[in-house]
Amino acid sequence: MLGNISLSVTWALAGVYTLLLFSTLLVTILRYRSGKDYQELGSRINSWWVMVVIFTFAIAVSPTISIIFLAFISFLAFKEFLSMIPTRRADRRVIFWAFIAIPIQFYWAAVGWYGLFIIFIPVYMFLLIPARMVLAGETEGFLKAAGTLHWGLMTTVFSLSHAAYLLALPNDINVAGGAGLLFFLVFLTQFNDVAQYTWGKLFGKHPVVPKVSPKKTQQGLAGGLVTTLFAAWLIAPYLTPLSHQQALMARLLIGLGGFLGDVVISAIKRDIGVKDSGSLIPGHGGIMDRVDSLTFTAPLFFHFIYYLHY
């Protein structure tokens, strides 16, 4: 079953399970010591277990399964986005076509057709959406509807599909293969989120963008960067073709990009007036609350590594 992944990815996954075991143990001890039930923290960690197990299967079986898995995440995120924003009745069929763009975009990624992959949504869907809307004929709220729809496709589909393209990059440059790159990206993005959250909870004082997200603090941001710095430096040579120095730069991109992705999605939720994008993942909120950072880090990391090595 683990035939698809190299030894280094297997070790990296083992590391993640160790981290999870450690945090589960920690919460159990905290509960025992203090008598409180730490419900939110507990359900967060339980959800992490589920997500990590699903992710393990998704990358271990075959690259095709990994890409289908990522396309499905994209589908869930796009659906959640559409359920969250105001839409027009006249645009039902336009939205249908936007959904059809998901398998097509991930197909370009799967076969490694870079040219179409990189222009399909920014150019063709950008033109198709207003064209189909004109056929429906409703002009009231036209620009807003065209803009929000395309924005949704760009974040939840185009951006996230960069994670899938990592799996189509040639294997001979990188011993750990696409799975190694994907692991590096997803692990650093998510670990950075957790580290920022934890440092923010413990020492957070000065919010970075108080009007958007008072809980995102400078201390959390800095703490997150420092915590994952060492992890990135250490694992990069085993999972990616990056040198130690390049790994530190990739790390910086992921840390800052992840933070920005997070607060951008927060700003949108604040604009609409919802707290969580959904309730799919207990303790975390919706799928968008979990992949918000990835919408920024996936394209940033992909183009960084693509420029340097492929």
């Binding site: 589908f75 659906k79 959640e80 559409l82 359920s83 839409t87 009745r89 039902r92 069929r93 939205i95 249908f96 959904f99 959904g278």
Partner: peptide, 15 residues
């Protein structure tokens, strides 16, 4: 009602 309203045959996914 957004996913499949009266008079429509095409299903569009919404939560």
């Amino acid at each position: 009602g957004m996913a499949l309203p009266k008079g429509e045959a095409l299903l569009v996914p919404f939560f």
